[in-house]
């Protein structure tokens, strides 16, 4: 059992995500073993760990793409339960970016971005499209609005995916290995957008293998292994002076 302390107390900001003793099984394999953490508003947390350590499962539980079986998760004071109203609220407050982009291939970039604002937020079409153009400019590809995802490069697709999530004006953004499926030369364009977002004060949870990004942007780093949080700390603490042996081993393999 492991816990990150109440970040809100230290930072003087309210808590955004509270994960309390979250358990998750796949058949008889326990993927999450009582994961507890609290993430404050405007905090950027990078989750590191070897593959199969449960980090993706964890952030997918926060968006209820996976249903946790023990413990509790709440986002912005709303607990994730079977209550449809809470699920809808949390989904519209939490944006998610996937490893495989998961853009809708049959819709144009513009339609990809405006779909949810129009049908979930019930925004008029013109407003949604104006907002979408702003977001596309922010991620640097306003000229691609009329194209289909299949006509874009991987980096561009991932930036569209980020814009698509931002269009719902979420209070939290979750990134599930956003650069793992990209060619090396495209990684930086996506990371730049994410850094920009972090500077803007977005609460972010990022699962990634990009150590440079973690060191530069993260407020805190969470290291997970076999379904447990092993160590938590600032980037400085984490990269220069880790306390746990398992963390040291991981860092020696990866750096």
């Amino acid at each position: 059992m492991s816990t990150i302390g109440a970040a809100g107390v230290e930072l003087g900001r309210p808590d955004m995500i509270v994960s309390d003793g979250v358990d998750k099984w796949y058949g008889d394999f326990q993927a999450l073993k009582g994961v507890s953490a609290t993430i404050a508003e405007r905090e950027v947390v990078v989750v590191l760990g070897p593959s199969g350590s449960g980090k993706s499962t964890w952030i997918r539980c926060i968006n209820r793409l996976e249903v946790h079986q023990g413990g509790s998760i709440s986002v912005d004071g709303i607990e994730l339960t079977n209550d449809t109203r809470n699920i809808d609220k949390i989904r519209s407050e939490v944006g998610m970016v996937f490893q495989q982009f998961n853009l809708f291939p049959h819709l144009t970039v513009m339609d990809n971005i405006t779909l949810a604002p129009r049908w979930v937020r019930k925004q008029p079409k013109a407003d949604a499209e104006n907002r979408a153009m702003e977001l596309l400019e922010r991620v640097g590809i306003p000229e691609q609005a009329a194209k289909f995802p299949g006509q874009l490069s991987g980096g561009q697709q991932q930036r569209v995916a980020i814009a698509r999530s931002l269009a719902m004006e979420p209070r939290v953004m979750l990134f599930d290995e956003p650069t793992s499926a990209l060619d090396p030369e495209m990684i930086s364009e996506v990371l730049d957008v994410m850094k920009d977002l972090a500077r803007g004060g977005m609460t972010m949870m990022v699962v990634t293998h990009e150590m440079g990004f973690a060191r530069e942007v993260a407020d805190r780093i969470v290291f997970m292994e076999s379904g447990e949080i092993v160590e938590v700390g600032t980037p400085e603490h984490f990269f220069t002076n880790p306390t746990e042996d398992r963390t040291k081993l991981f860092l020696s393999q990866i750096l």
Partner: peptide, 22 residues
């Protein structure tokens, strides 16, 4: 692919919207 369902869910579409739009 599974990811299409997940992306729609993550955006907060209802299951009817997910089925008919995606």
């Amino acid at each position: 692919r599974r990811g299409q369902f997940e992306a729609a869910d993550a955006l907060g579409l209802t299951s009817g919207q997910r089925t008919s739009f995606i």
